[in-house]
Design a protein around this nucleic acid. Sequence first.
DNA 1: TCATACTGCCGGAACTGTTCCGGCTTGACC
DNA 2: GGTCAAGCCGGAACAGTTCCGGCAGTATGA
Lengths: 349, 349
Amino acid sequence: MSSVRKIANSVGVSVATVSRALNNHPDVSAETRQRVLEAARSTGYNPSVGKRPTNVIGLVYPTGPVQAGYGDFDSLMLSGVVRGANEQRFDVTIINLDRDKDEFESYTQFFHRKGVRGVVIRALEATSVLASEIAAEGFPSIMIADRSEDPRVNFVDSESKSTSRKAVEHLIDIGHKRIALAIHNVQDSDHQDREDGYCQALAEAGLERDEDLTVRAPAGPEGGAMMLDHLLQHEDPPTAIFFTNPLSTVGALHRCLQLGVRVPKDLSVIGFDDGDVRLRTFPNFTAVCQDAQGLGLEAARWLTRSLTGNAHHSCRELHRTTLNVHGSTSLCPITGVRLMAGNQIVRQV
Amino acid sequence: MSSVRKIANSVGVSVATVSRALNNHPDVSAETRQRVLEAARSTGYNPSVGKRPTNVIGLVYPTGPVQAGYGDFDSLMLSGVVRGANEQRFDVTIINLDRDKDEFESYTQFFHRKGVRGVVIRALEATSVLASEIAAEGFPSIMIADRSEDPRVNFVDSESKSTSRKAVEHLIDIGHKRIALAIHNVQDSDHQDREDGYCQALAEAGLERDEDLTVRAPAGPEGGAMMLDHLLQHEDPPTAIFFTNPLSTVGALHRCLQLGVRVPKDLSVIGFDDGDVRLRTFPNFTAVCQDAQGLGLEAARWLTRSLTGNAHHSCRELHRTTLNVHGSTSLCPITGVRLMAGNQIVRQV
DNA sequence: TCATACTGCCGGAACTGTTCCGGCTTGACC
DNA sequence: GGTCAAGCCGGAACAGTTCCGGCAGTATGA
């Protein structure tokens, strides 16, 4: 077991200096600090008050305080993390990196100062680099809601390709042939998955993909409405649309009600959901659902098991998503709906 | 400053015994433990590793791991708590009481073991007693999203009476006279406030309250639909309804779309919202909005300021709510809508 | 030129709290 | 009455942090 005194001996300084170096106090020369940190890293130093190891994991938000605006997702994920940590009697502390992590401090050093033995990293945009850096230091960590090419990075992510495919297959099964894809215009692995699932289902059924039936817009209700308008203005409009974002789906369904497009009689709609959004719209929409709570649960469970010694080496898990069928999908209509100038609706074969 | 050695001296035992008593180890007699705990309480003992006080507050969930199912509320509140704690550079750790609090352990003792200097208590059902007990021990604490008669209890709660009143006044201003109240059938201070606001607005305008226009049902979409049906079956149905729960409002709006009742042309609806639910329905509904994030922010801000010495004595704050007008309210129709047998809609004067 | 003062860096010691080990007392049992 | 076990407690050794003072090097001023 490593301790400040051991490190002090091996480096040839006093325990006071070791403590200062570890806690980022100014009164240490850069050269001494480096030697101490190196010794701490190589001996796997883990601070402990008294003797008891402190059973706390951190939930790390990379950018500022926890962001709102992700709907239920964060709440559910947090709930899962807390439950997962519970199983091994761990507590959860919320850490935000950019508040008081010193620039010259290593992640390991920082997390030790915070008194956590491991961290769950909430993936936002471009968190992958961060996760790689932390993993490279060897600090126990797992990223949640994103994946990484880096083999050292542990993660739990949603796998939405197969369910996206299943969603489109569902539409094909009930007779739809012109199926549109309305996608968030950001290129990440998640959205690539959804597009891939869409393509696979079409190919499998022997349907040609019509590039005109793929539209992109920012996530959000306005984007959803815009994409709907655009698709319905096509001279041979789709009879079904697959939206890859919850709020886009909401916007599109609202727009349908405004225009008088009857869902699902005139048009079938499948969306995405993280939480309960699909149950708030009219009609409730058929959706590919991510299990946000399950992600949190698995991540925290793996991390705490790994810390208590009873876990496998790495975790690179793709969590399954489910297709929940509600009232926004039904048999392909004989007459499709087309949107004309002046927001006029015409039904045509 | 109090320490284990001071306490050991004053009680007349060894530091080892003090530590054991404080940490709930078995090898201490009940009598000794009592004397130690009493000394710790009276001297305001606060454990510290080394010298530095640990700047962490706890977010306490009384029953088990954090519950999902409150929609955005918890996510937003948490976000607020973290931001509020940020200002004084505090961290937040999530604590669930019924996991590892020993039965014979005081709350103070438990929280010290967890290493937090103060707690924010998330009010669920009947948390008021808990908050009183913690306050009685003198541990720094504040309850969030509920209020208490106990003068020792600090809290931040929503004040929904005045805005409920404003909501009903809004309906009266645009010509409505028969305004119904659809309320969650649980009697707590919060719902009492909403009912009081309703009554005050009616009284102020010289309108008689019709008891037939008050209905109660469980919170949730089904309850909302039931209440809507019941009200519209009245021989002299209301032209506007005030719902005091977000999900009830959702259910009622869905039911309107099913029945062909046009909102707001046939019927005006005002609901409640904690987060973004009002923006998910069609039409988006006019709502009395609680600022969940603001509650969290204020609570954590007060607590951390109080802990760092720059705060007033107690906090008994009622946070303001706001009336957000959306598309579910408009001028009182000349012909009202009545629901007949067989779900037939008739319009009558 | 030399005394003085300041700054950067570090060590000793004193402080915080926890746990191991051993000892004392008490009571039960053969 | 001897023995054993359990309950309770103290000493000491452990964990890490911080205060205070010292040492060296450098700048400053008479």
